Amino acid sequence: MTSKANSPPSYEEALHHPKAEDCSYQPPPSYSPSTGMYPGPPGYWSQGGVFPQTSESPGLSPTVTTIPTLSAAVPAAHTGDMEAFFRNQWESTSVRHAFIRKVYLILAVQLAFTFTVVAVFTFVDPVRLFVIRYPGIYWASLAVYFVVYCVLICLKEPRRRFPWNLLLLGIFTLALSYMAGTISSYYETKAVFIAMGITVVVCVAVTVFCFQTKVDLTSCSGLLCIAGVLLMIIGIVTAVVLSFQYVHWLHMLYAAIGAVVYTLFLVYNTQLLIGNRELAISPEEYVFGALSLYVDIVHIFLFILQVSGSATE
């Protein structure tokens, strides 16, 4: 039987003498509605919420529980999902930006070569007379242009496999540059300069418009196909009529319509390149992206050249 001296103190003794040697029980703290928290031991809140140092427990203080942040309130599995989502978003954005830079770098090389050929065919008289005297080379370049264009557009494997894609793109650029230079040799230098200037303004305006606007032209691909078919029909009719008798206003009308339609094509292909619309080009299709923009810009130049050439005559 345990003696009374070794028995634990009663509840009243522990309540009135908290520092009793054999005190093994502390009453539960009461909740304070005014402060919204449990009161700490004596001196706890007067010391800023930190237990005071005492001689009986030197250097010891209880662990302060910090309030969890908002991100810590998210379960670990959900946090990993969010991190993966933002990481994928950043990676896709960086890939798209690298793709856009690659396409515009290739496009800049193509346009620099094409307009150099146009300048040579326009300013160097022996070259200009040569291409006018031998139109068969023009028709041969047209055939090469058509065949290579069909290969790059219809076949995915050649336009994605390096270095065949760049080789085919180079042949295509050479053929279209010769065609553009041959057509430019029939016009005055002033008309060529005017067409180049207007083309540059149109291309810059279209690029800024596509990067700023919320209008999605990729959702109107059906209307653009109809516009392309109508342009082809008008071109055939114009070619037939002009082969019998030259009609100035008909030629001007066809050239103006062609410039407008290819400007819309340029907007459409630029938005495909950006990739934040309903339709987008895969980052692997950098040759297709450069090819589309290049064809649009050169055709805009040729149609504007016909308008400016007719206006300066």
Rank of each mutant, 00 (worst) to 15 (best):
V206D: 06
S55R: 08
I300H: 06
V287N: 03
S30L: 14
T114F: 04
N165V: 04
V201F: 14
R277L: 05
G59L: 04
V151F: 05
V298A: 04
T263L: 07
S32Q: 09
H97E: 12
V118L: 07
V261M: 11
N276P: 01
I300G: 04
L250M: 15
V240W: 03
A280V: 06
P283S: 08
A256E: 00
L253Q: 00
G289C: 10
T63G: 01
G181L: 01
V103A: 11
I194K: 13
A143Y: 00
R277D: 06
M1T: 12
Y254R: 01
A175T: 00
L305S: 04
F123S: 09
E83I: 14
N276K: 15
V261C: 08
Y25G: 02
I198Q: 06
A143V: 08
L168V: 00
L272E: 05
V151D: 03
T312L: 15
A256W: 07
I137E: 03
T218G: 03
D296G: 05
F172N: 05
S3C: 06
A227D: 00
I257Y: 11
Y178F: 14
N276E: 10
F288T: 10
L293Q: 10
Q53F: 10
A98H: 08
S177C: 05
T182G: 01
D296S: 08
G235K: 01
M196N: 00
V124D: 04
G235L: 01
L302F: 06
Y254H: 12
V247E: 04
V237R: 07
V267S: 03
V204C: 11
S184A: 15
T189P: 01
F244N: 08
P75V: 04
A290N: 03
V148T: 13
L129F: 11
A255P: 08
Q26L: 12
E83L: 14
G40F: 10
E278L: 12
V208N: 07
K102M: 05
T218F: 07
F115M: 05
Y149P: 00
F123W: 13
P9E: 06
C203T: 15
N6W: 11
R159M: 04
P8K: 12
E285H: 07
A140H: 03
V229F: 15
N6E: 11
M37Y: 11
Y268I: 06
V237M: 11
F121D: 02
F115A: 07
C23D: 03
Q26T: 13
C210V: 14
E278R: 14
F303W: 10
M232V: 06
T116M: 11
R87F: 10
T238E: 06
I132F: 07
A112Y: 05
H97W: 10
